[in-house]
Simulated scan of single mutants.
Amino acid sequence: MSPDPRSLEGTGLSEAWVDDLVERTLAEDLAGGAVLPGAPDLAVSCDVTSAATVPPAQLGTADLVARAGGVVAGLPVAARVFTRLAPGATLTAGAADGDRVARGDVLLTVRGPVRALLAAERSALNIASRASGIATATRAWADAVEGTGAVVLDTRKTTPGLRPLEKYAVRCGGGSNKRMGLYDVAMVKDNHVAAAGSVAAAVAAVRERAPRVPVQVEADTPAQAVEAVAAGADFLLLDNMTPAQLREVVGLVGGRAELEATGGLTLSVAREVAATGVDFLSVGALTHSSPILDLALDLRAG
């Protein structure tokens, strides 16, 4: 038996979160409160065009197709959009999240009531196109630093309400996640230092109140990096440093703290930065500026 294209196994996405995302996404198209459990006909009827042009009992098959090459992500979530409105639909996977695909490749095939497929079309495409665009951009960065030992990270610069999906898409593209929120890593930045009085005081305060949380300190110069390590930082966020400065920091504190380059990074300099010896490159643009991957739904009637 082929795997269920709706399965979230291995994605790190919770069933409850995905169900909520699907409901919220469909509600944007289907008059909000009309998307109710157990009332798929009511939901579909809110698609006035399909209700007017498609007979209620008409069945069809639709292919989710790549209109451009890239890396796909979010297919299980998109699949659940279709089965939310057409619970009896049959789905066949043509690709899996993380796959490289070419223009014209069929990523998912769905058979069910045509009204439901068309009502779900844009919501499914929005989710998969957004996630796949992030995965595609991340893969370009991961390819650029391949072999250097450095890892590409995302940041918290995500679309409100979509962070789990967008960070999952980064993983699909070969990157890794930094902190998921404000709770899992203590990030001591300049404003925290100003409030606490010094880097050492800020780190000590975190250690006292959250002893199990890793501590990262932002540094703008090699001297600040040395100070942060002396204060007990586990990680350093090396902000807007030149490759020469990054190499200097690696020589001064490498091995005593993990080093993350950030700020103004572009794909054209990714390999040069990675070659300085830093452990990570964090790139906010992965989630805040990646263009979507162009996907479409092609209906085959009958």
Rank of each mutant, 00 (worst) to 15 (best):
S14I: 05
G147K: 11
L165F: 08
S7V: 06
T148I: 10
A86W: 03
V106D: 03
L85A: 08
R271D: 10
W17N: 08
A194L: 07
D99C: 11
A219V: 00
T92L: 14
A150D: 05
R207F: 05
S129D: 08
A120Y: 02
K167Y: 11
L107S: 01
A142D: 05
V110Y: 07
F82V: 01
G173S: 12
R111D: 09
L108A: 07
A261D: 02
T61H: 03
G12R: 06
S268Y: 02
V206S: 08
G197I: 00
G254M: 08
D105E: 13
N240H: 11
A124P: 12
S2I: 09
A196K: 00
V213I: 14
E9A: 15
L281R: 10
E15T: 14
E146H: 15
V72A: 11
P55I: 00
R111I: 00
V185P: 00
E260K: 00
A201F: 03
S282T: 01
D143S: 13
G147N: 07
T92K: 13
L281I: 06
T158C: 11
A73P: 10
T221D: 00
D234Y: 06
V193D: 00
G251C: 08
A78L: 05
T61N: 01
P76C: 03
T276Y: 07
S290I: 09
S289F: 05
V250E: 01
V253K: 11
L13V: 09
E23W: 15
N177M: 02
R103C: 09
R207I: 01
R80S: 07
T221L: 00
V22R: 14
G147L: 05
G112E: 04
